[in-house]
Amino acid sequence: MDDVVLQTVTLMLLPFIQTYGIYIMVNGHLTPGGGFAGGAVLGISLILYALTFHVDEAAKVYPRRKAEALESLGALVFIFIGLLGVLGGAAFLTNNTSFLSGQAGTLLGGGFILPVTVAVGLKVASTVVTLFFHLLEEEKR
């Protein structure tokens, strides 16, 4: 689909879409949304890129192997952060506000919630992209 208008508009939109996705992701503990919603928006921006340019182009920007690795990594980081709660002497996934101990209600005041939502966001974004690539592969076969 080599449409100059489409490609230009996509390129103009992409930074905004991705910024918005990251915004939703990191504000997970303050506003509605969070890791899943933000990750989905991020993933969709990559799908949009793959649709307007070509899948091979997108695969260059965001290789599948990396997407799969990031998927595992997101989940593992989540579990690791959960275990930090156990190491702190409390239950699994217990929040510890001495980490990122800004004022409550600000971006850096949520303890472990920020890293957890970022981990979830990365996992969801890469899952969305991997799913998209898988569906395309099924088509080719």
């Binding site: 998927e71 595992s72 593992l76």
Partner: peptide, 8 residues
């Protein structure tokens, strides 16, 4: 954890 670590 092992389920997610295995693919990598």
């Amino acid at each position: 954890g092992l389920a997610f670590a295995l693919p990598v």
